[in-house]
Design a protein around this nucleic acid. Sequence first.
RNA 1: GCCCCUGUAGCUCAGUAGGAUAGAGCAGUGGUUUCCUAAACCAUUGGUCGGAGGUUCGAAUCCUCUCAGGGGUACCA
Length: 550
Amino acid sequence: MKPQEYIRNNIKNALSACGFDGDDEKLLVLEKPKQAEFGDISSSAAMNLAKAAKQAPRKIAADIISKLDTDPFYIEKVEIAGPGFINFFLAKECLRQAVLDIHQEGKDYGKSFWGKGKKIQFEFVSANPTGPLNIVSARAAAVGDVFASLYNMVGFKAEREFYVNDAGRQIRLLGISLNARYMTELGRKIPVPEDGYHGNYLADLAKEIVANDSDKYAQFNEEERCNLFSKMALDYMVKRHKDSLDKYHVFYDNWFRETVVREQKAHEKVLDYFAKHNYSYTKDGAVWFRSSDFGDEKDRVLVTSEGEPTYFLIDIAYHENKFSRGFSKLFDLWGPDHHGYIPRMSAALQALGHPREKFEVCIIQQVNLLRGGDTVKMSKRAGEIIEMDELIDEVGVDAARYFFVDRRVSQPLDFDIELAKKQSDENPVYYVQYAHARICNILRFAVEGGIEIPGQADMSPLGNELEFAVVKKCLDFPEIVSKAASALEPHRITGYLHETATVFHRFYHENRVVTDNAELTAARLMLCKVTRQVIANGLKLLSISAPENM
RNA sequence: GCCCCUGUAGCUCAGUAGGAUAGAGCAGUGGUUUCCUAAACCAUUGGUCGGAGGUUCGAAUCCUCUCAGGGGUACCA
């Protein structure tokens, strides 16, 4: 049994013995004291009970403690402190045992099972295939990927999906824009329409087409040619997106195309359903959804007076399609510009019979790009955007991913390219990776000295505070993973890894691992292995490499 | 107008289902290497938690008001 588990059960029993509700989750929450002198684990149950029980918190705490079962294997001592905290000090023996337990779990350490194998889905990035991926997509890609990894770690079956908007006006415009570039390349100057796509990537593609097929398409009539070019540009862009994301270590389970929804007439089924249930009506020649009946601030158009289905309608049908694939919950990651869109989508899905909590949107705040402290101005109109590829090429995958994930998602992010590039102590990525590399080096050194790396060891030689600090930190990992997942807060992982690295570096500095003392060496090597495992597991969650040397 | 996000150390940010002396990294200052990687470690400087009220044993955290910045408010996608 893990120490936390033991203490939790223990408090639960003591509460019941004192006549309190031992099943009240709120009373069973364990906290980490801010300072080491307050012990390893604390409970504020007594203070939370004080008001209802009309007793002094410290008195309640004393009662609870009197009913605690303090197995010396787990508990060194228990104290009442401050206004009524109950502080537990873990016994050395269970910490020593924990090292072996974690070692046993290996790659699986950190997993939990509260997801119960439920199928869920994360849809993220889903950038329009009309231009290269930009910085905002880079943040969404890193975050969405880590969310999926986190949820897989806690027992869900999480899938990653990219929605490709491969239909509609913008794709026609893409074809027209490519047509202009192609004809221009052939010497017949046709301008890219003002609301078309002006980026150089289409000019590049046009050159490529001319190089391969020469003027073969010039004979086509214009409409035919634009249609063909729409398709060519689309395939080209999707491929580019895929390549960029591969390079970034983001791998999707599914690339879902909007045309599938249209071909299956799924949106018409939604219309029929809404009409049948009186969730829609016609006004001014357009079909409206009564979204205000489901919490939206006003009704929304499903079919325009021109007879065109809106993006919203198609999107509803798409989400209905997701549910039909058996996901018990859908997570969408959107940019801040879409937050006003949440109530209407939520309304639509509720109208279709899906409970509100089965659809959750996570808004990823914007990214401000800096270079050495100065803002990098980006103008989409003029085609001046920093592409995700450029960013990765410049700062590297590991640093980019670390920076994007190391901040609360709901918070705008200042990304300083110069800082991310720096291979110095200003850059937190290397700090964590260095701890991993350092441990690898210790193990290498031991092997070179003829010492066998133990698969088992007697941990009793572990005795000082720095050693135990490392163990305690490693012990926190599963809980951190669970919290990061349930709260959708990936920055907890980077923060934790940084702390783990700190504790290890500190230990390393004061304690020599490989010494003449064979027993002590074996125990410390085991401690090193376990720490390396925890750091590696954490980095793997983030898809950041764990280098063996630096 | 209405909605969302944000305001904590010089900079970038943690900390918010109320809890102990508000933390970390970087920057600054001063130290540490005959020894498994100094991309490290140790010490130290630095705070009216935007402001004002309120709720209570206790507020960065909850409520009201207020100031400041960013974003959103389409028969676009």
